[in-house]
């Protein structure tokens, strides 16, 4: 993650390529990385048997990916909304806030 490179100038709307993806947009916000994840998967086996994986769908910041039988949690993309732990049908996601002012910081809000 190279979120330290801040795109203060923004992304022109006509650049449809950059607009269609979440990641370039996330770079626009101020972000300080916490060393430990504030999102915890309680039991990966539960995710394995979960067929719909709604956390992947609802997350507005593409935090969740399913690769090689594992749910990958890119917690440093997180915008701290809480959608994932509410939608999880197995209550398998533990949600906390990042420590000491870390995580996302909006300039506009």
């Amino acid at each position: 993650m190279t979120k330290s490179i801040l795109k203060k100038e923004g992304i022109p709307i006509w650049k449809s390529e950059e607009n269609s993806k979440v990641e370039p947009k996330l770079f626009l916000a101020r972000y300080k990385r916490d060393d430990i994840s504030h999102l915890t998967i309680k039991d990966n086996a539960v995710c394995l048997k979960c067929t719909r994986k709604p956390c992947i769908i609802v997350c507005p910041a593409d935090v969740y990916k399913f690769e090689e039988d594992r749910l990958i949690v890119s917690y440093d993309n997180c915008v701290e909304c809480g959608s994932c732990f509410i939608i999880c049908p197995y209550e398998n996601i533990e949600f906390r806030y990042p420590r000491w002012g870390k995580g996302i910081g909006y300039r506009y809000g």
């Binding site: 100038e9 992304i11 947009k25 626009l28 910041a61 915008v79 506009y108």
Partner: peptide, 14 residues
């Protein structure tokens, strides 16, 4: 309305 604009921030909240 937005075509000439510049995206400054993307945010989400419950």
């Amino acid at each position: 309305y937005i075509k000439d604009g510049v995206l400054k921030e993307y945010s989400a909240h419950l």
